[in-house]
Design a protein around this nucleic acid. Structure first.
Length: 204
DNA sequence: CACCAGGTTGACC
DNA sequence: GGTCAACATGGT
């Protein structure tokens, strides 16, 4: 199957339509959302983001100086709220001190290394920030992507799967953004840990 | 009531 | 290198 991944993309696009990810008003909002959405429903993240906006805390400078307890209150609904509050503040201090534009403007490889040094930023969060805040082409691998890859016989760790997608697709930021969004939409509906309903993937 | 969500970390093989 | 509990709230 030469164009297996591209076929899958078109299948999902036909089924769900364009997703226009990531839903956010600013690049920093993308970054905050990427941290908060770890192991959490997006609806909870939206609530937390709204709470932060209500208190005018959704900027690197404001969050960097905010009271830890206040941050915890705002993001409690996203779970793991104590460690997320601490990590959110550390991340905000990093972006505040170094300048968000300058950081996001770094070359991809360097940017990824920098992001991975931050506490609470692993491969998926770093790549989400690069793809949706820095608008640079890197493929995000999440839990749904791993499950779907198993369905079509593609196995391996994070970087292996990432390379598989990137080697199979045109290096296009918009394509990567939409494909990952479509995978999440599909996964939410059809693929949880224990069930894989009406799998349209296996036929690709 | 049990299971799950757009992961990451540190400990331990 | 890989695996695993801990982290914690809210929805189904």
């Amino acid at each position: 199957m030469p164009d297996q991944m591209l076929d899958l993309y078109h299948l999902l696009l036909a089924k769900f339509g364009p997703q226009y990810w990531w839903p956010a008003e600013t690049e920093f909002e993308v970054i905050v959302g990427a941290l908060l959405t770890q192991q959490t429903r997006w609806e909870s993240v939206e609530q937390a983001i709204a709470n932060l906006k209500d208190r005018s805390l959704l900027t690197p400078a404001a969050l960097a100086d905010a009271d830890q307890g206040t941050i915890e209150e705002c993001i409690r609904c996203t779970g793991f709220y104590r460690q997320k509050a601490e990590r959110l503040q550390l991340l905000s201090q990093y972006f505040d001190h170094n300048g968000i534009t300058g950081i996001l403007g770094m070359p991809v490889a360097e940017l990824r290394r920098e992001l991975l040094l931050l506490k609470g930023v692993g491969p998926e969060t770093a790549d989400s920030i690069i793809l949706y805040a820095a608008h640079k082409p890197i493929f995000v691998i999440d839990a749904y992507t791993k499950r779907i890859c198993e369905c079509i016989g593609v196995t391996g760790g994070y970087e292996t799967l990432q390379k598989h997608f990137e080697d199979s697709l045109p290096r296009d930021t918009h394509l990567y953004q939409e494909f990952h969004a479509l995978i999440v939409m599909y996964g939410k509906q059809y693929c949880t840990r224990k069930r894989c309903n009406d799998c349209i993937i296996a036929r690709v």
